[in-house]
Structures are given as C-alpha cells and as structure tokens.
Design a protein around this nucleic acid. Structure first.
Lengths: 145, 145
DNA sequence: TTGATTGCAAACGGTTTGCATGGGA
DNA sequence: TCCCATGCAAACCGTTTGCAATCAA
C-alpha cells in the first residue's frame, strides 16, 4: 500500500531542477488527504479554497507531472478521469448510483493472480491486471433497500 | 457470447415506432464486423467510406441509441471511449503499446467469480465485475523482443 | 402524411497551449 | 540572476444540441 508521499515529491523536485511551489504543495496535500478519487475539477475547487486564484492550467500541469512520474495514477470511471494517489497494485469498486470509486486492496483478491491471467492468454505478454467491481456502495445500498 | 445482432436491432426498431435508415444499417454492420473496439471517430470514418456525408451527429446518435438499448457497450481505454458489440459478460486485454483492446471470454476467467468479489467486500452490494489485463499484444510483443 | 432522423453548424465541457509576468533556487 | 512555473485567454477536441430539411413507414 504505497500512497503519494511528500518526500517522493520533494525528491523528484530536487533531482530535476524543478521548483516546489505553494500550488504544487497544496495539490499534493489535497491528493494525500483524499479518501475518494478526485476529478481534476474537484482538485481545482479544493485547491482554490485554500489558495485562491490557482489556475486550472496549473492544476492540470501538476496532475500530469505527478502522473508522468508515477506518483499518482489515472482511473477512468463513468466517462470521467479521476486521480488516484494510491499507486500500489490494487483494484476498484465503483458505485453505479453515486459514482463513487473505492479502493480494494490487491491482497484481498487472492483468487485471481497474475499467473492465471497469463495462462488465460496465448501469445500476449501479460504485465498486470486490475479488477473493477461494480454495484451499490454501502450508502446507496441502504437508500435503495 | 452474444454479439450485436441485426435482428435485435430490427426488433428494437419495430417495437418503438423507430425507423431503420441506411446510416443506422451501415453503422450496425460496421460494428458487427469490427474485430477491435472502434472509437466513435473510427465508426464515423468507416461509415463515410461506404455512405459519404454521414454526419458525426448521426454516428453519435446511433451509438448512444444502441448503447441505451444494451446492444453495444462502452469501454474506456487510454482516455478514449470505445464501442464494444460484444454485450456478453467478458473481460479485456489492453496493449500498452498500440492501445489495442482484445476480448477475453468470461468462461476463461474461472479463478475469480462473482461470489468471491462479494466476499471481498463488506456492506457494498456487488453486481458484476470486469478484469482488465494489460501488457503487450502478440504483434507488439514480437517487435519488442 | 407525419413525425422520426438527418446534416449542418453552433454550443458545450474538459483539457491543452502560447505567452508575458512572477517567483523559487 | 536565471529559468521554471504561474495565470490568463485562446485554442483544441470530442460530444451534444437546435433547427430546418428530408425521408422511412
């Protein structure tokens, strides 16, 4: 379970002659604290509450930069790009009603392993896999019943 | 393994007072013949080769109409929406190099079943799941090695 | 005939880009 | 000081919408 680390960001900055700006700091902090998987727009809004006048361009720049360095990963759900500060191997649960995306730890999915994915296929080279489980989240399930 | 059927489309049309236009026919034919998972733009281009002057609006209308009636399903890969004429329960293999999306039959994935997905989670209501396997497709694997 | 469907073009929403200004190192 | 990063606005791209003309039933 490796989450976006402040130190990893600092290291990345130090090694490449890049700069640690207040905007970047706040975007990283927000992603670290996010329990869900925020969209770029949610990041933009959250960051602007703490640091008004941060532009969308900066938010997108920073998200792309983090992504390019493997510090966050993108997930597409419901036609929306979301950012996931959890970069370890894991899976997702998506609520079909509220659209929430929850993490499912890879350690829980013992039944399906990479070797099995490999054996399913022929001449392809399998590198990794992810499972997306769909249904109703706890909250929506209660409302529904 | 249920693929988009001409008859299912005709039935859908007949039951709802809708019309079977040449454009719709060609879009359906193209999707049926597609081995990969075409994007809206690929559908647009393919259709225009056979039936010039078909507008993007019509392509999008038709795709959304097929989707709304469960005759095709959407998959998001690499930030692009793709249309899949295979509506049966199945999984995907995505090539990280060329971006190709291949189907993996659900019958092949014996190791991970819905009951297991359910048992992984707590108060959520699990309805279905899909597995996305990533790596290099046969063609790219050959080039790479 | 009639209303669903089409083509066109404009609108839309999310993301990127160009450029002058500003601010870390 | 240097040049990376920012804010702004315009551009961009995929998709949707409004509307008058068209055409399948």
């Amino acid at each position: 379970m490796s989450r976006l680390q402040t130190q990893a960001v600092e290291t990345m900055v130090g090694e490449n002659g890049l700069k640690m700006t207040p905007q970047r700091r706040i975007i990283v902090e927000y992603l670290q604290s996010a329990v869900n998987h925020p969209t770029a727009d949610e990041v933009f809004n959250a960051v602007n509450e703490k640091f008004p006048m941060t532009s969308r361009a900066t938010v997108y720049n920073t998200l792309n930069w983090l992504k390019g360095n493997g510090l966050v990963c993108e997930v597409f759900e419901g036609g929306v790009v979301r950012y996931d500060p959890n970069t370890s191997n894991h899976h997702h649960f998506v609520c079909r009603k509220c659209g929430k995306v929850e993490d499912v730890g890879a350690e829980l999915v013992g039944a399906f392993q990479l070797e099995q994915a490999v054996s399913l296929l022929g001449s392809q080279k399998v590198e990794n896999f992810e499972i997306t489980i769909r249904g109703l989240c706890a909250a929506c399930h209660v409302i529904d019943s």
